[in-house]
Design a protein around this nucleic acid. Sequence first.
RNA 1: CGCGGGGUAGAGCAGUUGGCAGCUCGCCAGGCCCAUAACCUGGAGGUCGCCGGUUCAAAUCCGGCCCCCGCAA
Length: 315
Amino acid sequence: MTDNNGKAKIIFIGTADFGLPAFKALIKDGDFEIVLVITQPDKPIGRKQIVTSSPIKIAAEKNDLIILQPEHIIDIKEKISLLKPDLIFVAAYAQLIPEEILNLPKYGCLNLHASLLPKYRGSAIIQAAILNNDEQTGLTIIKMDKGLDTGPILAQTVVSIGKEDTAGTLYDKLSAASPDFTITTIKKYLAGKITPATQNSSQANYAKELTKSDGLINWSKPAINLERFIRAMNPWPIAWTWWKGKQVKIISAQSQPIEINSYKPGKTFKYNSGLAVQCGQNALIIKSLQLEGKSALLSEDFLRGHEDFIGNMLG
RNA sequence: CGCGGGGUAGAGCAGUUGGCAGCUCGCCAGGCCCAUAACCUGGAGGUCGCCGGUUCAAAUCCGGCCCCCGCAA
């Protein structure tokens, strides 16, 4: 039971699809045996409130793995203990794991985190990297301690941020980089080849969880900042503004060094047959947008049916 | 039964006191011009989401269904 044919006994804990590639890699790798998968309970999702399983649960079912979905992970402490896991690996679980559980596995708990710690602890870390105009971000695997993303660092890998990257595309890049990174790091760690390095907490900062209202655009900010903001808010919560009492999502936009002094921030106007909005400094060319109740449209399509959009104040 | 918006020409929209179906753009043809994404003229293209009902007459009123979307979760 202890030495399971030389395979390390791993408990995988995760919910969102961010951890999926790493999860699948762990399943396939012959050096590991996933003895348990822990994921969030099925929840009603979407307009129809259909009860849906997490991506991790669906993948676990396909591989006939044992799954637990406790409301609070502490409730299954005994079960975890009985399995005598070598390692617990956590990726995008969306629940804090108490210290009592962190200490159960022989080699502790590792966490896959989507930033270069100690920069950006917390939730909206991918968005934070774009908002702050970072040229690169990456993945970090830490050995978890009782704090939030404060444990010592085992390894990091860098992913560059492109000028066109949204939180969504960056999320995909990071997710795609995770399988090799995860497998390599775990193997080195279990072989005793890694010495965890304490984080320099003086350089740490937290990226708080975003809500829908965080997507509201403040047009008095410079266009260049708003362009980043719009990329960071995509695909969720999506940057949005008000127009005639209705919400309008700004899906994508590009800052342009044009400024019309008589226009106040939030004023819409035509620019080379395109749609532009005056910002605090310079203007944004809106490439695609979505009116509430309608589907997302390129601005040229949108304007065909909403000529009165031009010359209005947004916000 | 969580709240709400919407399905009309290839695209985006207008059109509900019921009365031959419209606008902008695109497309095709022709014209103007040194030339053009500009301009002018002409043209093609629609079972008005589906089914049923009321009516002399339904995109429009009534009933049922399907699909898309915003909010909330």
